[in-house]
Design a protein around this nucleic acid. Structure first.
Lengths: 110, 110
DNA sequence: CCTCTTGGTTTGTAGCGCAAACCTGTCTGC
DNA sequence: GCAGACAGGTTTGCGCTACAAACCAAGAGG
């Protein structure tokens, strides 16, 4: 079996980063959520949350849409198909790599 | 069920970082390995590998010991009990958080 | 008016990952 | 015996990024 460690070492940081992994994972459960709800869910600071969302929007993993609830603005965030697929694949990749690592036995010069 | 996303967002970067996750995971399979073997396994550059190992040594997750194989120096790296436990726990935490996230249903104001 | 709260964005900075440059010794051809 | 190539790492410098503090806007209440 090929060693899984190289793949592990090159995991995509864009998704792997804890805050964004939390956001994407939460959004796949919610479909869509507003800004402050996401903040409560993840415990991130506003600034932090805002910049992570910008990054996720840039690469097309989420959509950020300013709406109005009555008169006050309210930002709705939703995960895109691309985003949902990416995070799902990331989790599967992690699971698979861990499983491979468990059953891997050293070979060659240790 | 309590939302798992806050815990997800605050995962320990020291272990979560892909290169170190790969290193620790590899070392728990190997018990110990030399520098260049680890480099081949993970695909990291020497400099990179060296600095990650320093960090892991600082917090007591690995031991780094310079030995001699014949006349040429050879650095042996081994995971400590503390390190093994930490990485094992991290994997379990990931697994558990993912499982929780899957079964979690939105509550409160979305 | 003023200032408090809600709902965010921008800015400043410390820290980190990365690779290129460097260092130290050994071995090999000539 | 010494010029280079190679093994085995370490240090340095830089670009990026996560984070929070400061800031901004606008409605509500007094």
């Amino acid at each position: 079996m090929k060693a899984p460690f190289e793949e592990l070492a090159t995991l995509d940081r864009l998704i792997h980063e804890p805050a964004r992994l939390a956001l994407l994972t939460a959004l796949t459960s919610c479909e869509s959520a507003d800004f402050l709800y996401l903040q409560r869910l993840t415990g991130l600071s506003k600034g932090n949350l805002s910049s992570h969302l910008s990054k996720l929007e840039e690469v097309g993993f989420v959509t950020v849409e300013k709406q109005f609830k009555g008169k006050t603005p309210l930002t709705r965030i939703a995960v895109t198909d691309k985003g949902r697929e990416a995070v799902e694949q990331h989790w599967q990749q992690l699971e698979q790599l861990r499983s491979k690592a468990k059953h891997w036995v050293p070979q060659g010069t240790e």
